[in-house]
């Protein structure tokens, strides 16, 4: 089954914990903020993606079986 990550970049504050856990998935920009908004995972990347999402102090990352739209609740 295809899995997607969705990053709410308006919530990202550049902790960089996602990239520390899964550098191949969560690419950072020159300022150290996650530049992925949504990404379809390759088979075998799921565990690393989950570890990265779970380590985000801002809860900016969601993982689902489809591409997710913006989540207004994510910022609350």
């Amino acid at each position: 089954m295809t899995m997607w990550i969705t990053v709410d970049t308006s919530v990202c504050c550049g902790h960089g914990r996602c990239a520390a856990a899964a550098p191949d998935i969560y690419r950072l920009d020159d300022n150290g903020y996650c530049r992925i908004e949504s990404l379809e995972l390759l088979s075998g990347q799921e565990d690393a993606a989950r570890a990265g999402a779970a380590s985000c102090p801002e809860r900016a990352i969601r993982i689902a079986d489809r591409r997710l739209g913006p989540d207004p609740a994510a910022a609350s």
Partner: peptide, 20 residues
């Protein structure tokens, strides 16, 4: 510890710039 999402460096826009 898995998924150690601590905020020793703060959280939100003022997160410690020197954290890394």
């Amino acid at each position: 510890r898995p998924a150690n999402r601590h905020i020793a460096y703060g959280a939100g826009p003022h997160r410690c710039i020197g954290s890394h």
